[in-house]
Each structure stands twice: as structure tokens, then as C-alpha cells.
């Protein structure tokens, strides 16, 4: 379904009844959407996944780019790390949340900038396909990694 543009600019004042009852206040985030359950869930998902990602992604960056650097990270580093179910679960949760959070952001940007109906349908199709394909290949990478099989596959 093609959504009506919701806009996400800082001065966006929605025409929803809720905001009509009060004086319009310029805000940094989007007004909590009304009228569509999907947009409301997306709005909440953005904020909840964002909070979790602060924890997950900042931890990831500190371990991978500050304590270690890309000079030290190689196949053995990843294989060693994925020996631990904890880090596999951590990485998989981060993968899913980051991908959906990021593509949902791209979807809002598409709604803001892509006006012609055909292009909008095309852009939404690309985003949903990207979500499905990258969730699948990312999950395969994290969940099915097996050092013994990987060495054989590389030969």
C-alpha cells in the first residue's frame, strides 16, 4: 500500500484531530502518527529499536573500532567471537533491529522526496526487497557459521 506522505520535517504539523486541539508546537521528531496502525507501529518501533541500538551499536563500535581496530579484525577474530552464543545472539539482534530501523528511515525519506506515484511504488518495492534479502543473507551469516564447514567451502 502506498502511504500518504506523512512528512517528517521539524516544523511538520499534522492535520490530525489530536494536534488540532492544541496550539501547534514545532517539534524535532515526527508527530505521533494517527489514522494508520502501520505508521503508529513504525513510529514506536523507531524509538524502541533506537534505544536498543544505542546499547548494541555503541558496544559494537567500541569493541570493533576502538578497542580493536580493523587491522586486527580478520577471519580468525570473527570465528573466535562467534564461538560464543552470546555474541551470535547479540550480532543477530543488532542485524535485525539496525536493518529494519535504517530501512524504515529510508522509507520515510522516500515518502518525503519521491512524489510520482510510479517511482514511489518502485522505491518502496526496492526497500522491502532489500529488507527481505539482507535479513536472509545476514541471518545465514550469523546463525549458520561453522568454522569447519567454512574452511572446506573456501577450498
Amino acid at each position: 500500500m502506498v502511504q500518504v506522505p506523512t512528512g517528517s520535517g521539524p516544523d511538520q504539523v499534522s492535520a490530525a484531530p489530536r494536534s488540532a486541539r492544541r496550539a501547534p508546537i514545532p517539534r524535532v521528531g515526527r508527530e505521533r502518527p494517527t489514522g494508520s496502525n502501520f505508521e503508529l507501529y513504525s513510529w514506536y518501533f523507531f524509538r524502541v529499536s533506537g534505544l536498543l541500538l544505542i546499547l548494541l551499536a555503541i558496544t559494537h563500535v567500541v569493541i570493533m573500532h576502538v578497542i580493536n581496530t580493523v587491522d586486527e579484525i580478520d577471519y580468525d577474530f570473527v570465528a573466535d567471537r562467534w564461538n560464543s552464543p552470546f555474541w551470535r545472539a547479540f550480532d543477530w539482534l543488532m542485524l535485525v533491529l539496525a536493518l529494519l530501523h535504517g530501512l524504515n528511515g529510508a522509507r520515510i525519506a522516500v515518502d518525503d522526496y519521491v512524489r510520482p506515484r510510479g517511482w514511489r511504488v518502485f522505491a518502496h518495492s526496492v526497500l522491502w526487497s532489500t529488507a527481505i534479502i539482507f535479513l536472509i543473507i545476514g541471518s545465514i551469516a550469523v546463525v549458520t557459521f561453522n568454522p569447519d564447514a567454512a574452511v572446506t567451502a573456501g577450498r
Binding site: 577471519y75 545476514g138 551469516a141 567454512a150 573456501g154
Partner: peptide
């Protein structure tokens, strides 16, 4: 928005590279 979209582009690249881990040390390294 700019930072978010930038991180998203890197994330997609990063998923592709980590997929190569399943194909062994040489493929990934």
C-alpha cells in the same frame, strides 16, 4: 537524516562482507 542514511549504506555493505565469512578464511580475508 543524513547520518542515518549514511549508516544504513555502510550497514548494507557490512552485511555483504560478513556473508563472506561463511566461505572461509581466504574469501573473507
Amino acid at each position: 537524516r543524513l547520518a542515518g542514511l549514511g549508516v544504513l549504506v555502510f550497514l548494507l555493505l557490512h552485511i555483504v562482507d560478513i556473508f563472506a565469512v561463511g566461505y572461509g578464511p581466504e574469501a573473507f580475508n
